[in-house]
Amino acid sequence: MDNIPNYSKSQLALRNGQDKPEIWVSYKGLIYDVTKSRLWRDGKHYEHWAGQDLTEELKSAPHSEAAFERFEVIGKLI
């Protein structure tokens, strides 16, 4: 995990499935690539939007943080 790049909130925001083809989300300081997930089509997943930190939003989600284990960590949010 030490060798992964750092990204700012504005860099993360561009990976929202609209501005760039990548779909990324952040959770607890790590950035995950959810581009291949059918649940994140067009950068949205139910009431959640890609390109942002979902740490606080996960508290009201019907699943646990284990849902992120399926996705590749591609960076750290700085």
Rank of each mutant, 00 (worst) to 15 (best):
R41K: 15
G75E: 10
A61C: 11
D33V: 05
K59A: 14
D42E: 14
K59W: 03
P62K: 05
L14D: 08
E69K: 04
K28H: 12
F71G: 01
G43A: 12
K59Y: 06
L54G: 02
F71L: 04
A13D: 04
E56A: 13
T35Y: 06
D19E: 14
G17L: 11
A50N: 13
K36F: 09
I31T: 04
L12G: 02
K28R: 13
P21S: 15
A66D: 12
E56C: 05
F71K: 01
K9D: 12
K44A: 06
H45G: 10
E57W: 01
T35G: 08
D2P: 06
F71Y: 12
D2F: 12
E22V: 09
R41A: 14
S64E: 05
A61I: 00
A67W: 01
V73C: 08
F71R: 01
K59T: 04
A66M: 09
Q11S: 05
G43P: 06
A61D: 00
I31R: 00
L77F: 00
D19R: 13
T35F: 07
Y27I: 06
E47L: 05
I23S: 09
T35A: 09
M1T: 14
L30C: 01
R70E: 11
V73G: 07
I31Y: 01
S60K: 07
L54V: 03
S37W: 04
L58R: 03
E22N: 14
P21M: 12
K36P: 02
E22M: 08
L12Q: 04
K20T: 15
W24H: 01
D42W: 04
P21Y: 10
K9A: 13
P21F: 12
G17Q: 10
Q52V: 04
N3K: 15
H63M: 04
F68W: 00
Q52I: 03
I23V: 15
Y46E: 08
A13G: 07
R41N: 14
Y7Q: 01
L30T: 02
Y27F: 15
S37P: 02
W40L: 09
D2V: 11
P21R: 13
D2Y: 11
R38M: 08
Y32G: 05
S64Y: 03
S37N: 07
R38V: 07
G43I: 10
